[in-house]
Computed example of a mutant assay.
Amino acid sequence: MTTESPSSYNDLEKMNINAILTSINKEDQTVPDAVQKAIPQIEALVSQIVPRMQKGGRLFYIGAGTSGRLGVVDASECPPTFGVPFDLVVGIIAGGDTAIRKAVENAEDDWNQAWIDLASYQPDENDTLIGIAASGRTPYVIGGLNEARKAGLLTGCVVCNDGSAVAKASEFPVEVVVGPEFLTGSTRMKAGTAQKLVLNMISTAVMIRLGKVKGNKMVDMQLTNEKLVNRALKMIIDEINVSPEKAQALLNEHGSVRASIEAYEKQI
C-alpha cells in the first residue's frame, strides 16, 4: 500500500523548522493533481447520488479515525451551508461520537458495527453509503459497504490506494493515490487532505444539482451569526438591487436569501 510506503525524507528529527515546513508543503502540492486524476470516478458517483436524493434518498458517510472525522465534518457543514435537514447528509464514525475527539480502541476492526450504526436510520434503496478509508482495508467500512449493497443502497468510497478491499466492496469507488506521506504512514496528512477535497466536491456538486445554489450563492444557508446575516444582506442587494434597509426588511420577514428574493420578484 502506497499509504504505508516509507517517506521520501529521512532523519526528520534533524531537519530545521523551515526544512520541515517546506518539505510538507512540497508534498501537499501533489494532492490536487491526484484528485484531478480521479474526477471521472467522482463524476460517476455524483451522477448516481443525485437522482436518488431527488427521490428522497440520503447520503451517509462511514469511516474510522481521521477518515471518519472528515465524513462527520462534511456532513455537519451541509445544513448551515445549504439549509438542508440535519439528517439528509449523515457522518458516522467507528466508535461513535466519542471517537470524534478521542480514539476508541479497536472500533475500526469490527466488521458488523457499521451496519448496526446505520440501522437506526432505517436505510433504503434511495440512500447512498460512501465509505472513507485512506488504507482501503478498514473492516468497519468494508463490512458496512457489503451489507449496504445487499440492502440495495448505492455504494461508493474514497480511498488512497489502488485496488483496495474497500474499493472492491463499492459500486462507484473513488481512488486518489497520493503516494507516501512525509511522515511515514501518517494518513492524516496528504491522504486526509485528498479525502477532504473529494468530500467537498461530492457534497457541493450534489447540492448544486439539487437546486440548493442560485448563481454562485448559498441562498439557502442558515443565518446563525452576524457574519452570515451580513453575507445574506449583500446577496439580496446584489441580486435584486434594493437598498440595505429594504434587504433587511425582506430578510426579517422571509428568513432566507432565497425566500426574500422570490417574494420580492413576485411583487414586481
Score class of each variant (00 low, 15 high):
M1A: 12
M1Y: 12
D11C: 08
N16A: 01
N16L: 09
T22Y: 08
S23T: 15
K26F: 10
E27C: 13
Q29W: 04
D33T: 09
P40V: 02
Q41A: 13
E43M: 13
E43P: 04
V46I: 15
Q48F: 01
I49P: 01
V50Q: 02
G56A: 07
G56P: 04
L59R: 06
F60R: 03
G65D: 01
G65K: 05
T66V: 02
S67H: 05
L70W: 12
D74F: 09
A75N: 03
A75Q: 09
S76V: 12
P80V: 08
P85W: 03
L88D: 00
L88I: 11
G96S: 03
I100H: 03
E105Q: 10
D110Y: 15
D110M: 05
D117W: 11
P123L: 06
P123A: 09
N126W: 04
A134F: 11
A134S: 12
G136Q: 11
G136H: 11
T138E: 07
T138I: 05
P139E: 04
V141W: 14
G143V: 02
E147T: 07
A148E: 02
A148V: 01
T155S: 06
T155I: 03
V158T: 01
V159Q: 04
V159W: 05
V159D: 00
C160V: 00
N161S: 06
V166E: 05
A169G: 04
P173W: 05
P180A: 14
P180G: 06
F182T: 01
G185R: 12
T193N: 07
A194K: 07
M207T: 00
K217P: 01
K217I: 00
M221R: 05
M221K: 10
M221H: 08
T224R: 11
L228I: 08
V229S: 02
R231F: 08
A232K: 09
L233M: 05
M235N: 11
D238Q: 13
D238A: 09
E239I: 05
S243P: 01
E245T: 12
L250W: 14
L251E: 02
N252S: 14
E253G: 05
S256T: 13
V257N: 06
E262T: 09
A263K: 13
A263L: 06
E265I: 08
I268S: 11
